[in-house]
Each structure stands twice: as C-alpha cells, then as structure tokens.
Computed example of a mutant assay.
Amino acid sequence: MKKAFALAAVAALMLPVAANAERTGEEVYKTKCAVCHVAGVAGAPKFGDAAAWAPRAEKGADALLATAKSGINAMPPKGTCMDCSDAELAAAIDHMLSNSK
C-alpha cells in the first residue's frame, strides 16, 4: 500500500509544469470574458471601445481587479472565471484595457 502511494506521489510531481501554469490575459479574455465583453451584454464595456473603458481605466488596476472579483451590476463575482487567480484576472483586465485605447 505504501509503495502504491509513493508511486502516485512521484507521478503527481512529474506532471508537466504547463498543467499548473497561469493563463495569459488574452487566454482568459478569449475563453471567459469575451462571452459578455464582445457584444456588451448587460452593459459590459465592449472590447476595443475606448470611450467605455476610459472611465474604468481612470480608477486604476487595483480598483478594477476588486470590482472584477466582487462583481458589479449583472457581472457575477469573477465574471465567468471562477477558477481564475487574481493574477489571471488582472492580466485579463490589462488585456482589455490595452486593446481599448
């Protein structure tokens, strides 16, 4: 029994690093955020819409991350990315802001 447990532990340690790698902002946007931000569902600022994103950008990255984590209006907490880390959410926000200037 101990040998089987030890082999399972070693196998788990040998998983590819990519299995635990954080997703890029673009990946998170395309797989999660785009669902609402492409069409502006329920008032979500559209990707690429500089006028819609400007007042949000003025609030700063920390405030936007806090809002994304807690949700706002029709957006639930973390949007549709319940498995996103704070770093992944921040990267997705940066991706949207960078492409909406």
Rank of each mutant, 00 (worst) to 15 (best):
E27P: 04
A42E: 03
E88P: 08
A18S: 07
V38A: 10
A8I: 07
A34H: 08
A19N: 09
G25E: 02
K2S: 14
A61M: 14
D83C: 07
M14I: 08
A44G: 05
V35P: 07
K30W: 11
C84F: 02
A90I: 06
S98D: 12
M96V: 11
M82Y: 07
L97G: 01
W53F: 15
A4F: 03
A52C: 11
A34E: 14
A87Q: 10
V41T: 11
V17F: 06
A92F: 00
G79F: 00
A66V: 13
A61K: 09
L97Y: 01
C84E: 00
N20I: 10
A4R: 09
A8L: 07
Y29S: 01
A92Q: 04
K30H: 06
A19L: 13
F5E: 15
A18P: 05
V17C: 10
V28H: 04
A57H: 06
F5C: 08
D62W: 11
G43M: 08
P76Q: 04
A90N: 07
V28K: 03
K32D: 06
A18D: 00
K30C: 05
A87N: 06
A51L: 11
T80Q: 03
I72S: 10
T24Y: 00
A74Y: 08
F5R: 11
G40T: 14
D62C: 15
V41W: 11
M1Q: 11
K46F: 05
A90K: 14
D86V: 05
D62H: 14
K78P: 03
K32C: 01
S98R: 11
L13M: 15
A52G: 13
G60N: 13
L15H: 01
L89A: 03
A74G: 04
M82N: 08
M96L: 12
L13K: 03
A63N: 12
A90H: 01
A39W: 09
A92T: 08
A51I: 07
P16I: 02
P77Y: 07
E22D: 13
E27M: 06
A91C: 01
I93H: 05
P16R: 05
G43S: 12
I93F: 09
T80M: 06
A68F: 08
A61E: 13
S85E: 04
M14D: 00
A50W: 09
A42S: 12
L7H: 01
T67L: 04
T80G: 01
C36K: 10
A91H: 06
T80V: 05
K32Q: 12
G71L: 00
D62G: 12
A61G: 13
V28P: 02
K3H: 14
T67V: 10
L7Q: 04
D49I: 12
A92K: 08
P77N: 09
C84N: 02
A19V: 04
V38T: 13
L89Y: 00
K30P: 02
Y29P: 09
G48S: 11
G40W: 11
P77T: 06
L13F: 09
L65H: 05
N20R: 03
A34Q: 10
A87L: 10
R23K: 02
A68D: 02
T31I: 01
P55W: 12
D86I: 12
L15N: 03
D86L: 09
A44D: 07
A39Y: 15
G60K: 15
A6Y: 05
D62P: 06
M82L: 01
C36W: 06
F47Q: 12
S85M: 02
K69N: 04
A11I: 00
A68T: 10
P45M: 05
G40R: 15
K32M: 07
